[in-house]
Design a protein around this nucleic acid. Structure first.
Lengths: 323, 323
DNA sequence: GAATGTTACTAGAACGTTCTAGTTACTATG
DNA sequence: CATAGTAACTAGAACGTTCTAGTAACATTC
């Protein structure tokens, strides 16, 4: 299991180190015949190019860092699939880092990506402060996904509009007491809150807001205390929280979509499942990832001097929790 | 944004390159006073050690590769949390790679980890053939999670027993036509199938097996054709598939846990949610991850000559789909 | 006061690639 | 037939660290 290097292959194949490198990178400069010969020797010896050495030596080996906030939330899997569907086509590498419940972990994860010398970072769901995010943006090329910050390239869904869509639907169904289960740590928090507030107030109603955290269990508890205030409809900041609301309703003997309407946000596969059938705002997570990846690739090409921000238009997916 | 290296810091601080390295690694050999001075200069210049260079030069900088099969399945998030709860304590680095729907992608991901020169790989949910897995095990130190293969260190739950537990519960509830919704691509497939088959036959009943794939939507379709055969209970190979079964039942107007019992496998947070309240086998994914990480750390210490396999005892979590 | 440590530091090699600047041999052009 | 161009290849520097083997200064021991 001792490491075999490019030198071993070069010696065994009777060519220079450089030629082996050229062959393995698939760049022009080697004849088909010798390339095959080199590969054959390499395979026999069990040669695997050392990625660390390659990344150290190479000016043009582009690697893209991807940060995902929470593996327990399927939204990030959707975003990642979108990213990979674009990056996978190019010959760039992805280095992955993921967040955790621990506060400040996202900053640590970005530091690791920077230390890995990635050329650009796509960060989905950052929860750090605007100030801290801006500081990172000066140190590295950064594309923020789902979190919008001035002066930083970002790909987001229009959370304000999404919230208005959701609440608008509830209003059109005749609701007069519409609550919002909010998570101040969520990326789109302020926009969704604004959208909710504006929609409610424009309809001549008054806002009813309950704050909660990332965890579904906590969302369920907070939903229960919200339900005690007898809203006729509840808009939740994301699908996981909406599930908490549905749970809380069911354990009170209330029927979602009949007794109390529920609308979520994210359109995860969870909400699509018929047993839950959650009405939800679709931010188009997969497309979000794709657009972010396109911007990242653009930054690799042109050096990334110009700020690029994409805002997608969300849609409302109507299912049975608010038919 | 031009890169500042250890040389820049050394020059500015008036010390040697080596001393800066010593200070930043936190190893003994530098006085407290100069260390502080070095850090101060480093901070001012914005120095971030190049991880690629460090990994290339260092013999003892241990990095652990982690492979997760499917970000859409929360089991892997649980396993990863377990891994990180152990590795995070040590000063080892984690390099992450994730699978995809694309066939053969897990092999590619492992190749990338090997190329990154990780010292040991923890792979959760590998779907490659036994032969291919064995070949990888000769090339690198490998700990397989949820997938058990002879001659390879692994951490698994006793899938055979888990299946027997599940089916045993259904039998004790008086069921006489118990079906199994199986996914041949699942890691524990053969064991779960054996457990199901043995339990059913020992009870004097006959097996009824329907195969499906990873996707929840496909599981729903296959569940529907299974339901047409009028089983009184259905055991699904994992929670996602069980959700598919529940969906199929609901859309036929049948009530899970009343008309037809349903049991899943994984005890993901999905199954815990009251609205679903899925009876399921708990393989203890978090502990699985922890044990795998412990073995990996052991391998780093002792060179990993000896084979180590842990098998956890699953429990049955009884909820309302099979009360 | 010589031997022995110990602490704080340094010079230079090493890690395994890629890149730059060639060199050689052969082919096409006018 | 000289010139230019191209394809196939090479030697050696470069990337930014860590490691090995040392040195100098000073304290401790008998």
């Amino acid at each position: 299991m001792t490491k075999v290097t490019i030198n071993d292959v070069a010696k065994a194949a009777g060519v220079s180190r450089a030629l082996v490198s050229i062959a393995y990178r698939g760049v022009p400069g080697v004849s088909e015949a010798t390339a095959q010969h080199i590969f054959q020797i390499g395979k026999k010896l069990g040669y695997v190019p050392n990625l660390n050495a390659a990344r150290l030596a190479s000016k043009k080996l582009n690697t893209i860092g991807v940060f995902l906030q929470d593996l327990h939330n399927e939204v990030f899997a959707d975003v990642f699939d979108g990213i990979r569907s674009v990056i996978g086509q190019s010959d760039n590498q992805i280095v992955l880092a993921v967040g955790s419940a621990e506060a400040g972990h996202d900053a640590k994860a970005l530091e690791t990506l920077i230390a890995s010398q990635v050329d650009v970072i796509i960060a989905a769901g950052l929860t750090m402060s605007d100030a801290q995010l801006l500081k990172f943006a000066t140190r590295t090329k950064l594309v923020s996904v789902t979190r919008k910050v001035a002066k930083v390239s970002s790909v987001t869904s229009d959370d304000y509009m999404g919230a208005k869509l959701a609440v608008g639907h509830l209003i059109s169904r005749g609701h007069s007491k519409i609550a919002f289960l909010a998570n101040p740590q969520t990326d789109g928090y302020t926009d969704r809150l604004r959208g909710y507030r504006d929609a409610v107030i424009e309809a001549g109603l008054s806002p009813l807001i309950q704050e909660t955290t990332y965890s579904r269990v906590q969302a369920e508890l907070d939903a229960a205390s919200l339900i005690a205030k007898k809203p006729t409809a509840i808009f939740a900041h994301n699908d996981m929280a909406a599930l908490g609301v549905v749970d809380a309703l069911v354990s009170e003997g209330l029927k979602p979509g009949v007794d109390v309407d529920v609308v979520g946000f994210d359109n995860t596969s969870l909400s699509q499942t018929p047993v839950l059938a959650l009405t939800t705002v679709d931010p188009q997570s997969h497309t979000l990832g794709q657009e972010a990846a396109k911007i990242a690739l653009g930054i690799l090409k042109n050096g990334g001097k110009k700020l690029e921000s994409v805002q997608l238009t969300p849609t409302l997916v109507i299912r049975s929790t608010a038919p």
